[in-house]
Design a protein around this nucleic acid. Structure first.
Lengths: 224, 224
DNA sequence: ACCGGCCATCAAGAAAGCGTCAAAGGTGCG
DNA sequence: CGCACCTTTGACGCTTTCTTGATGGCCGGT
């Protein structure tokens, strides 16, 4: 979850931002002035800071400088002042973007996405645990006891369908359709063949599977 | 020297930008339309692109998409339209900033500084190790045992996609799309050809690659 | 207890994908 | 205009993977 720190002394604006950002899946914290903003930033280590320049206790550039001392998280400045000199000062102090009030909330969200996109570029992907093995669907890697395990294309496709429906039973026909195509309905021997291979590569005891389970007559199930 | 590509169909604006940017120590190239912009970007590999959205031949978001396939250099959009929907579309297409005309040249320069600062200090160590070879994506250089290794344009594009996803599997369709364009889907022989050349130039034992790996039936992977 | 259905496992032949070599178009440059 | 380099093709062994068939075990129904 991406953490955003909103710094604004006007409660209604802070509240509006919090609601909008939270609704879009961000984790939001707020601070009403510069001192608390710096403290909150140190405690939370946010991934992005939305900073109003019109704070009661400190100058905006000081806050930026205080943040830039130890973090390189993007800083998106809000301000009522449209003067170019103000913008230049903020940007050169270390801000990444500058939006003048009144602002369109959709545009602000787009700028937030643009700013966070860069940080996410080399990011990690979610991994699923299967007993002693770790499966990374995005990277297409499997690690087991530190060693890499290689899966073939068909094995990946089958495993992916199961892992994307954790705990749920997936019918044999659905598995066949998703992996081999709509013309395959009754080739359950394919499933047996490849489930056995997956178990051999992932389960601690392939003969007695714990996570890749067979539901006789119906299908298969991945149990986390 | 930081290279900037200015894309604008209005000669006086392009000229004004070139003069101002050059005066501030940047190396500037210009392009009057989208097609030439993409060609110039491929040839120059700029560190930043200033892009006017009102181009005669292509939609602005198409140009952004075309650039984003190749490079992750910051894109600063200029536009006469102040509508939020336009801004959101451009930012979500991959732009990093959006400035409406008429703009203050000082502010633009500050935004250029902010965008380039992020690229330099953003924590990305531009040098990647591949066995005995050292690849610098930003400088477009490869050194191996002290000697320079030359890569062709296509080789660079292919290598860049892989290196930007370290450890991750990149599907062959995605590789074809990113390097040769969206009309290439099944020309896996291209991939074989160029992967072989890259391995010959980078791997210690091209016949038994350690870093540029093949995942049969799926794609290729760069393993650090 | 017998039988039939379903599943796991093993063992081939068939097919697809990969690496490599070689050579024909294109393009830019001197 | 010719040259050099890069890109695009084509073809051929070779390995890996997919497909297919056969065998034996487990379980519920008769």
């Amino acid at each position: 979850m991406i953490k955003i720190l909103v710094v604004d002394d006007e409660p209604q604006i802070a509240r509006a931002l919090r609601i909008n950002l939270t609704a879009h899946g961000y984790e939001v914290a707020t601070a009403p002035d510069g001192a608390q903003a710096l403290r909150a930033a140190a405690a939370l280590v946010p991934d992005l800071v939305v900073l109003d320049l019109g704070l009661p206790d400190m100058d905006g550039t000081e806050v930026i400088a205080g943040l830039r001392g130890w973090t390189s998280a993007p800083i998106l400045v809000l301000s009522g002042r449209a003067a170019s000199a103000e913008k230049i000062a903020a940007l050169d102090a270390g801000a990444d973007d500058y939006v003048t009030k009144p602002f369109d909330i959709g545009e602000l969200l787009a700028r937030v996405r643009a700013a966070t996109r860069r940080g996410n570029a080399g990011g990690d992907s979610p991994a699923t645990e299967i007993g002693s093995a770790t499966v990374d669907l995005a990277a297409r890697t499997v690690k087991r006891d530190g060693a890499e395990v290689r899966l073939t294309k068909t094995e990946w496709q089958l495993l992916e369908v199961l892992l994307r429906n954790p705990g749920k039973l997936v019918g044999q026909r659905e598995l066949l359709h998703r992996v081999w195509g709509p013309n395959y309905d009754r080739e359950t021997n394919y499933l047996r063949q490849y489930m056995a291979q997956l178990r051999r590569k992932l389960e601690a005891d392939p003969a007695r599977p714990v996570h890749l389970l067979t539901e006789p007559g119906m299908g298969y199930r991945f149990k986390p």
